[in-house]
């Protein structure tokens, strides 16, 4: 169809633009040791709080470290946290949502009320509470953010599963004697992946913001490890003398979040059957 009639640029433009931005961030994260001009930890007391220059394109921080290099390494942490957090949310939420919709009745009531409860906490507060009980570390930040995502994914998975359950191929599967597990994983799951992937892209953007917020509050990545959140937190103290300390991590977050949101919106348009002819 689309392939036969040539590539439809208009339909894919958001995905391409979002993909480009996300690609830049991912590239920086994966190849940080090769891309970054300096180590993110090297101190140079002679070069404290220097503005952008030929040697340090985006300036240096209060300990004379290269801001560009730190921002690039920070992308690593953000991507790791977001990836694991979204995975926790996606897998947990999808299992809960599908189970609730498929079995219905009391199972559904219990699971979805638990999700309501979880959902009613402000996300950042929930993450802070979880971090307080799990201890502050990057791994715990990932898990905390992942748990914050579970209710959203579970609701989407439940609604999508309910739509699939109304299709006759589910009755057909039951009537040939297929087991519940096989129906759930072979018949339902592949048909609810598209909306979940869209949600995952958007959640990725949100995870980056949440991780930064936690780091900003000192609950995520611990210094000297660089993260956009703790860079921003440091930059706040030097707003007047060295604005680049705040602007650089801020812009990095902006590019990353924008990229994932565009990707999510684009995927929604591309996978939405109503948009096809």
């Amino acid at each position: 169809m689309a392939a036969a009639a040539g590539f439809d640029f208009r339909r894919w433009r958001l995905v391409l633009l979002g993909g480009l931005l996300v690609g830049i961030v991912l590239f920086a994260a994966i190849f940080a040791p090769w891309v970054a001009p300096y180590s993110p930890f090297d101190l140079d007391v002679t070069q404290m709080l220097q503005g952008p220059s030929a040697a340090h394109w985006l300036g240096t921080d209060e300990l004379g470290r290269d801001v560009l290099s730190r921002a690039i390494y920070a992308a690593r942490i953000s991507m790791q946290v977001a990836l694991l957090a979204v995975s926790v949310g996606l897998v947990g939420g999808t299992l809960i949502g599908m189970t609730a919709a498929y079995f219905g009745g009391l199972v559904e009531q219990a699971l979805m009320r638990a999700m309501d409860l979880l959902f009613s906490f402000p996300a950042i507060l929930l993450a802070v509470v979880l971090m307080a009980s799990l201890g502050t570390s990057v791994l715990n930040a990932m898990i905390a953010i992942g748990i914050v995502f579970i209710p959203g994914f579970s609701r989407l998975a439940r609604a999508s599963t309910q739509a699939v359950l109304r299709q006759q191929y589910i009755e057909a599967a039951r009537s040939i004697g297929m087991s519940d597990a096989r129906i759930i994983f072979r018949e339902i799951l592949p048909n609810i992946m598209a909306p979940l992937m869209v949600e995952a892209a958007v959640a990725f953007a949100y995870a980056v913001l949440l991780e930064s917020a936690l780091s900003f509050l000192g609950l995520g990545a611990q210094p000297p490890d660089p993260s956009w959140g703790n860079m921003l937190s440091t930059g706040r103290g030097f707003m007047a003398q060295a604005p680049w300390l705040s602007i650089v991590p801020g812009m990095a977050m902006f590019i990353c979040v924008l990229g994932f949101n565009l990707l999510g919106d684009g995927l929604r348009d591309v996978t939405d059957p109503h948009m096809r002819e």
Partner: peptide, 27 residues
């Protein structure tokens, strides 16, 4: 075994006819 009404929704849209026909045999 059963034959259902709706030719549009009685098959999993993501499975090939081969996969669909193999399912009862596998099960």
């Amino acid at each position: 075994q059963a034959v259902f009404q709706d030719p549009a929704s009685s098959f999993n849209p993501r499975q090939s006819i081969g996969t669909i026909l193999a399912a009862p045999l596998e099960v």
